[in-house]
Structure formats: C-alpha cells, structure tokens
C-alpha cells in the first residue's frame, strides 16, 4: 500500500512536471511574440507602423498594406521572413527598407518580428 502510494505520487509528479514544462514553453512563445511586437512597433527598430496598420498599434501610416490575416497571405513563413529581410527582392523600387542587408534589425530580431507578424 505504501509502495503503491509512492508510485502514484511519482507518476503524479512526473505529470505535474510535464505540465510545467508545457506551460513554460507556451509562455516563452508568448513572450517571444511580445518581443517581436515591441521590435515591430519601436520607432528606432522595425517601425513597421510608419507604413503599415497593425492591430494594437497607434498612429499607423498608410503607405503599405495593413498587416493582417498573414497566414492566408503568406502560408509559407520563410517567404514572409524573406519579405521582411529584403523587400527589394519582390519589388526593386520598394520604399520598404531592407531590414536585413542594411542591418536595421539583426537575424534574431527579424525572426522575432516574423513570428509576431505571422501570427497576426
């Protein structure tokens, strides 16, 4: 009985621990999304709001299309990242700054912004 009890507790602890890990993962991606959002809105970083309307952003410009339903428009996330990395690939005369090649954002920052935009 004692042993059985112990087993149950161990199993419970394992389950609990697994649950904690899952929760930790979920909150990590929440905070990554928050980081991406901050980078996208920051005037000194992405400043995407200068040209695009984005949910939750204020004083947005209207030079580029509003960024919404992005999974429909960019089912392939790599293509979305490529657009943010260097918009000149799709349109050589674009006004959208080449965030990657001109080092306006780092690789890591572009990943974070891409995640945030992809989830809009």
């Amino acid at each position: 009985m004692k042993i059985k009890n112990l087993r149950i507790t161990t199993a419970g602890a394992v389950l609990l621990a697994a649950g904690l890990v899952l929760a930790a993962q979920a909150s990590a991606s929440q905070s990554a999304l928050a980081k991406g959002k901050k980078l996208a809105f920051d005037r000194k970083k992405g400043n995407c709001l200068a040209c695009h309307q984005i949910e939750g952003g204020t004083q947005a410009g209207n030079i580029g299309p509003p960024l919404m339903n992005m999974k429909q428009r960019f089912p392939n996330k790599a293509k979305l990242r490529a657009q943010i990395w260097d918009a000149r690939k799709r349109n050589p005369h674009t006004i959208m700054p080449p965030f990657g090649p001109h080092r306006i954002l780092s690789d890591k920052e572009i990943d974070l912004v891409t995640d945030f935009i992809y989830n809009l």
């Binding site: 200068a50 410009g61 030079i63 006004i95 700054p97 080449p98 001109h102 306006i104």
Partner: peptide
C-alpha cells in the same frame, strides 16, 4: 541612408499618404 529612402519616395510617390503620424 540606412533606410534606403529617396526624397522622391516620400514627396513624389507617396505624397499625400501618412508615414507614421506625418
């Protein structure tokens, strides 16, 4: 510049549009 913009981008092509609050 780092942002790769021309005078004409802002004052010809997109004149009349808003860039952030401006």
């Amino acid at each position: 510049g780092q942002l790769n913009l021309s005078c004409a981008d802002c004052h010809v092509k997109y004149a009349g549009r808003r860039i952030r609050g401006n």
